[in-house]
Design a protein around this nucleic acid. Structure first.
Lengths: 337, 337
DNA sequence: ACATTATATGTTAGCGCTAACATAATTCCG
DNA sequence: CGGAATTATGTTAGCGCTAACATATAATGT
């Protein structure tokens, strides 16, 4: 026999019914120790690996939680995914990750794909999806948690922070310190709704103080220190009178620090800098960056917990209240403002 | 009706057989445009989402590639996963990620778990697994690609670099520059086989030159610049006469740079530093770190391509040769040696 | 016009497993 | 010691879909 062994083969070898073998493998029901041992032995003997596809179909449930993020190649989502993974470990649920590449259409496809696996819950970054995607999510009849962003109305539940407020807070901090010729540097701007919201909040608060952005620079690439350094150089060349730069991410801001260090600019006297995210990598830096600390791991952790809870309460008919779990955001001036 | 619509519901509404509806959804076989339209409409109407569990069972194939890595919370695996994801996008295969947390037993569980989804291929970091895990992989009858590490014998195929050689190369470089009181700083040492191999290679080459490590320091945590800074301070306090430090990762080395910058130490005159990985984040740094550049993205990309090829050639009976794809490793002295 | 091929649809029989409901073998306890 | 409760095992009938094999209808050529 060459094909993969099935439960039937195990049952045959152990001289029990398929059902009994199934029970042993799942650890449910009463099976005598002797029988259990025989089945275990047969499993070993055959190198049997259960087929969850079949199991899932028969039991009409798979213990999956779909997780969809725009990218894993930056520092924010790995932390979130780790939080999710940690929250789920120990439970029976298992995360499955999908990547949308900041592309709404790809996101839509990934959602459809994920849903076709009949997951027990779905966690997705952001509140903005295509119309069809939103419909699919709403119709899915499983807990849906939209994460990272709380400025808007979630399909179901939401765990994140207010990016608008992050922008406002940082603007306020900057204004308090007396800066007035303020620039902005960001990447992936048209794609990243959350960065857009921060900028909006930032500009609004500047506006309330009768100010506006003195200059700004954008790039359609992913953030990096090298890019931040370049952008800082370009921005300062164009507008040498800037006294403060707000970056869309700490990674860019780190590049800004590098530029200043290499060009004899004193921070914050010559130029003040502020970022966003609370990047662990910067902990070792000689100068502490002004930034908004996002509890990335916690966001993931709590989102996953919410799925666990909701999935548990499903039977108890309790129509769980739509939850908006807005986490606290600490904005610190560090030494760069 | 409250339950999720099935293909049967679609077929009923479109007044065709389930088979025809199935054909439309999968885009196979000949279906008249009129019928196709009717089915599409019914799908929309019902908000039908196919059930891949059922489909997978019936067709005995799911288009999944299992990917198992020890962690995603560091900079190496996100790059690898992105490479895999990119290589697979466009094909029909889809990656599914699992995390082993550098724990062999958890890895074993994750492998079993992944295999139970009947994936078309499996990509896993490292060559060292539990005995049972190795057996499962060998028995799985799908392409298995072990990545990152080429120093050893793969179950099936292997794409990576020689960590031993990375250590040797760096040692050679350091010796060429005339350093002789050399220290080592590493984290997660007992868990990270690859870092261990680098250290071994490093020490071997030192040994050939009649030298040995002057001092060394370890921590059981994950790498960070802050930790690197701390370790550097501790190491130099203990052994102030060191003239060079080799770190198990660039992140630690970056912390070393920070320590030196903050303490008025000139690199490389007072102390030379070398890391490992080619961390993009360091591109913006004022000083270029000596390091071994690992083609992380490429490793992922080629591993995934190998799965694609193997999966394609499966039908053609061609017993694909066990491939060891050792990628080139560039070791550069930068400005810190 | 009639066989010949291409197109379009349907029917049957599972995929490998588990829920739900039997039934058989024990244990329990007054 | 006999029937109720408990434990241990088996049987039946799908889960929702698709491969493989019909069959029916339309297009094609001579």
């Amino acid at each position: 026999m060459n094909r993969k062994p099935t439960l039937k083969d195990v049952a045959l070898l152990a001289e029990v019914s398929e059902m009994t073998a199934s029970r042993v493998l799942r650890g449910v029901g009463d099976v005598s120790p002797k029988t259990r041992e025989r089945v275990r032995h047969a499993v070993q003997e055959l190198g049997y690996v259960p087929n969850r596809i079949a199991g899932g179909l028969a039991s009409r449930s798979v213990n999956l939680v779909a997780v969809i993020v725009p990218s894993i190649r930056n520092y924010v989502f790995p932390d979130v995914l780790t939080g999710i993974s940690d929250a789920l470990s120990g439970s029976l649920l298992q995360p499955v990750f999908g990547i949308s590449n900041y592309d709404p259409d790809q996101e839509e496809r990934v959602i459809a794909d994920m849903l076709s696996w009949q997951p027990r819950g779905l966690i997705i970054a952001g509140l903005h999806h295509t119309e069809i995607a939103t419909k699919m999510l709403a119709a899915a009849d499983i807990p849906i948690v939209e994460i990272m962003d709380c400025d808007g109305t979630p399909v179901d539940a939401c765990v994140g922070i207010s990016h608008r407020q992050a922008g406002q807070d940082m603007a306020r901090l900057i204004l308090e310190r007396g800066y007035s010729r303020i620039g902005f540097a960001g990447t992936q701007m048209p794609l990243d709704f959350r960065a857009g919201k921060r900028l909006k909040g930032f500009e609004d608060t500047l506006g309330e103080a009768g100010l506006q952005l003195h200059d700004q620079i954008y790039y359609d690439e992913h953030s990096s220190t090298a890019k931040g350094r370049e952008m800082t150089a370009a921005l300062l060349e164009r507008s040498p009178d800037l006294d403060c730069i707000y970056y869309s991410s700490d990674l860019l801001a780190a590049g800004g620090i590098m530029h200043c260090m290499s060009n004899g600019l004193t921070i914050p006297d010559d130029i003040a800098l502020a970022g966003f995210n609370g990047l662990e990598m910067l902990d070792g830096f000689p100068i502490e960056l002004a930034t908004s600390h996002v509890p990335r791991y916690d966001i993931g952790f709590r989102a996953a917990q919410h799925v666990l809870d909701a999935s548990r309460n499903r039977d108890s008919q309790a129509s769980r209240p739509d939850l908006i779990d807005q986490l606290e955001l600490k904005t610190s001036a560090g030494e760069t403002l």
